[in-house]
Design a protein around this nucleic acid. Structure first.
Length: 839
RNA sequence: GCCCCCAUAGCCCAAUCGGCAGAGGCAGCCGACUUAAAAUCGGCACAGUGUGGGUUCGAGUCCCACUGGGGGCACCA
């Protein structure tokens, strides 16, 4: 009879239903605007501030699982810091300029703006369900004139400082997108990061930002990010900047006024130099050979053509046999006056160092390969036990004592380098210096959907910046424009737009037809979030002092040397311009791993796709977020085949039932009389979770939540207890709601309400754990004999070392283990361990 | 070639300062409920930490070498 009544009662209470919760809470949240940072700051100006940011999405289609993961982690941080009593800024916007929009527009004959903003609407809708705790009042679009006018402003500040400039150079050309690319956008195999096409080299005049001026600071300041950024990213940036120390050495050239300067990391081997090599496509090579014999000129011309036919990929292969031509010119070694032949060879790169090297074949493998092929002299100047390089074909690159080197004889590498630099400086023939792998950032693009470069070209060819009060230079309408890429900017064809006059005069001028790399847009967007509607300046410096720099930045490792390097650079520029008082934008960085399926990257063409939209529809935001957070360490890849969204949903349902059970009874008695085991569990979670979250061990906190639910369930079901009426169960349920808010905001809100709260759980304050509940009554002490566990004693956590040792030695098992042996040493680590060393 | 990271149950993963290898989950097995199944609930089992050395009273944790996997840079003078 009793059984029957209960079953009827149960069936009247709805089961956990994520769809019902989502449709109940989403509109409430939209109304409440709980996460408005300005409002929070006004309510509690005394509170400390945290700026939590996810890399803003590029709106190509809907959100995908990678977004789901990153935004899950970012939201855990944002929600966590709010609970910890911080005012949190957690904005969202759209990286809405870029080539995919243009390509889609060309394919479908629609405006790139239409395509982009349709996608934004779709992603926004997904976000509304996924429910990250964004401050939507700060939403921005980089493709809005009110945003990109400040790109143009930034460009002009840099132009005025000489940090934005034009030069004619060999550039990376993407034959598919028909535009130039930055070095950072070319992959190690010589293909385009975006299109996968083999990148070509073209000589073009383009706009650059002078990131090389900041190379030292960009490299050295990485040290302050140690431990806060993934070490992988730090290493990648260090490699990319690639600083080498060495010396510039001037070689006089016969029949030429100017010397040739070469850079060498081994100036100590200068006495071993037997020839010079210049890059064939360099201006220097062309100039040198123009003063040579007709024969040499013809040979060089043929070689140059042959070189240029070789693709960049072929050229970069170290395996390739060395080739080159003698230029019929001679240089003079500044320290011993020797005549050195000058060659051109394509193993020397035009755009690294000075595009010329001194060849020391005995001590550099590349030079040795070349010397052996063309029968050039090889002279050993560093003594070693190794075989003669001329015979073995193996260059001897290491440290050693210098020989055949005049004043350097007998010195080691380090001393010799110092000495030779002194010698060169005294002669005015060189100096110690450093050089970098990183090149200036090529920012002009021959495409439509980006920020116009605010420069006018006067008829005489001079460059005139657009006055700041005339910004923004608006993109012309696409009406009548053919956006198809053909190697020059489509803006150039917008006649009315291109043709203008110089400021304050009738003199005709043409607008620069190129647009900026979209990485310019994203290099400072985090600052625009501070005052997104400010029409008078790029961002509020006052707001920057309150919120910036970013405390936690979340995004994919694919930006390790693109966005993250550019953004660091621009931040330093803004620092130098007096706009911000910090010079690193991202205090800490979380790189989420990838979401894989069956061990490989998901892709539509491979048919191994987990769709964000369908996961969201089938399992809901909470279960999806719990699954992503629980899958493992944040930086590890998640294989969707290894996780269980159903498992997460099961956990959420168990959590819900605990709160439901509490809500159906009156809580009885004082909290202090509540079930002690459960209370300890609750307070341990409150005590441990902050450290775990701050160490980004989000998965461990989920495990702890599961444990709390399990213990709460057991407490309710225990036949000798008060069931759900036990105040410890209510306490556990409330704690559950609070901590679950980091992972499952819908369920957390529902639990909080079920437990009788009218306020928002998202703004609830993290309670202090009760210290008395964190200490155990007794702990298990392990007694080892020679490292092997022989006994376990239950002792007080406050036990003294002497008491513990005494108890250990009194134990029968321990006495038996020691037997006749002599006790050599006793290690006591009260209250948990005793190790008795016997012989 | 140079540099970096990782390796713990069948699987995903935990393990403050070096101190009992196991928190959590997936899959599995047994049981309860059910006419049955699903769901739910209860329970069970499973590794000695990639290999070999070293330091230490004691090593998953520190050091060295190796193997396997992942990543970065690379004709950068």
């Amino acid at each position: 009879m009793h059984e029957k009544v209960r079953r009827v009662a149960d069936s009247q209470v709805p089961e956990y239903d994520f769809r019902a919760l989502q449709s109940k809470w989403a509109p409430i949240w939209a109304e409440q605007r709980l996460f408005d940072a300005a409002a929070a700051s006004e309510r509690h100006p005394e509170r400390p501030h945290k700026y939590i940011l996810d890399m803003f999405p590029y709106p190509s289609g809907d959100l995908h699982m990678g977004h789901a993961e990153a935004f899950c982690y970012g939201d855990i941080e944002a929600r966590y810091w709010r609970h910890r009593g911080f005012n949190v800024l957690h904005p969202i916007g759209w990286d809405s300029f870029g080539l995919p929009a243009e390509d889609a527009a060309i394919k479908r004959g629609i405006n790139p703006r239409t395509w982009t903003y349709d996608n934004i609407a779709q992603q926004k809708h997904s976000f509304e369900i996924y429910a990250p705790s964004f401050d939507w009042s700060r939403e921005l679009h980089t493709s809005d004139p009110e945003y990109y006018r400040w790109n143009q402003w930034l460009f002009l500040q840099m132009y005025n400082k000489g940090l934005a400039y034009r030069k004619d150079s060999w550039v990376n050309w993407d034959p598919v997108d028909q535009t130039v690319l930055a070095n950072e956008q070319v992959l190690a195999d010589g293909t385009s990061e975006r299109t996968g096409a083999v990148v070509e080299k073209k000589k073009l005049t383009q706009w650059y930002l002078k990131i090389t001026d900041y190379a030292d600071r960009l490299l050295d300041d990485l040290d302050q990010l140690e431990g806060r950024w993934p070490s992988k990213v730090l290493q990648m940036q260090r490699n990319w900047i690639g600083r080498s120390y060495g010396a510039d050495i001037d070689f006089a050239v016969e029949g030429r006024e100017q010397p040739i300067t070469v850079f060498s990391t081994r100036p100590d081997t200068l006495y071993g130099a037997t020839f010079l090599v210049v890059a064939p496509e360099s201006d220097l090579a062309a100039e040198l050979v123009s003063g040579a014999s007709a024969e040499a000129r013809m040979a060089f011309q043929a070689y140059l053509e042959q070189t240029q036919k070789a693709s960049e990929i072929e050229r970069q292969s170290a395996e390739r046999p060395k080739t080159g031509v003698f230029l019929d010119r001679w240089a003079i070694n500044p320290v011993n006056g020797e005549r050195l032949p000058i060659w051109a060879a394509d193993y020397v790169l035009a755009d690294y160092g000075h595009g010329a090297v001194m060849a020391v074949p005995a001590h550099d493998q590349r030079d040795l390969d070349f010397a052996r092929k063309y029968d050039l002299p090889i002279r050993v100047v560093v003594a070693s036990d190794a075989a003669d390089p001329a015979v073995s074909g193996e260059a001897v690159a290491g440290d050693g004592v210098l020989v055949n080197s005049g004043p350097l004889d007998g010195l080691h590498k380090g001393e010799a380098i110092q000495k030779i630099i002194e010698v060169l400086e005294a002669k005015g023939a060189g100096h110690g210096t450093k050089t970098y792998r990183i090149r200036d950032w090529l920012i002009s693009r021959q495409r439509y959907w980006g920020t116009p470069i605010p420069i006018l070209h006067a008829e005489d060819g001079s460059l005139v910046p657009v006055p700041e009060d005339q910004l923004p230079v608006l993109l012309p309408d696409t009406e009548g424009l053919d956006l198809k890429p053909r190697g020059s900017s489509p803006l150039g064809a917008a006649t009315e737009w291109v043709n203008t006059t110089l400021p304050g005069s009738d003199a005709p001028a043409k607008r620069d037809p190129d647009t900026m790399d979209t990485f310019v847009d994203s290099s400072w967007y985090y600052l625009r979030f501070l005052s997104p509607n400010d029409a008078s300046q790029p961002f509020s410096q006052e707001q920057a002092r309150t919120w910036a720099p970013i405390d936690v930045y979340v995004g994919g490792v694919e930006h390790a040397i693109l966005h993250l390097l550019y953004s660091r650079f621009i931040t330093k520029v803004l620092h130098d311009l007096g706009w911000v008082d910090f010079d690193e934008p991202f205090t800490s960085l979380i790189n989420q791993g990838m979401v894989l399926l069956d061990g490989s990257k998901m892709s539509k063409s491979k048919g191994n796709l987990v769709e964000f939209a369908s996961e969201l529809r089938d399992h809901g935001a909470d279960a999806l977020r719990v699954t992503l957070a629980f899958a493992g360490p944040v930086e590890d890849d998640i294989d969707w085949a290894d996780v269980s969204v159903q498992g997460s949903a099961k956990f959420l349902a168990r959590a819900w039932r605990v709160a439901r059970d509490v809500s159906q009874v009156e809580t009885e008695g004082a909290l202090a009389d509540g079930d002690l085991t459960l209370r300890r569990e609750t307070h341990r979670l409150l005590a441990d979770a902050p450290g775990l979250i701050e160490a980004t061990k989000f998965n461990v906190v989920v495990a702890r939540l599961m444990e709390l639910v399990n213990v709460a369930r057991k407490t309710i079901d225990r036949p000798d207890g008060r069931g759900a009426a036990d105040p410890a169960v209510r306490e556990a349920a409330e704690t559950l709601a609070l901590v679950l808010d980091l992972y499952a905001p819908y369920l957390a809100a529902e639990l909080w309400q079920l437990l009788g709260h009218d306020d928002a759980v998202a703004l609830a304050v993290w309670p202090e754990p009760d210290a008395a509940l964190l200490v155990e009554d007794s702990v298990t002490a392990v007694v080892q004999v020679n490292g092997k566990v022989r006994a376990r004693l239950s002792v007080s956590p406050q036990i003294s070392a002497a008491d513990l040792e005494q108890a250990a030695r009194a134990d029968a098992h321990v006495i038996a283990s020691i037997g006749e042996a002599t006790v050599r040493k006793v290690i006591v680590r009260e209250p948990k361990l005793v190790n008795i060393v016997v012989s």
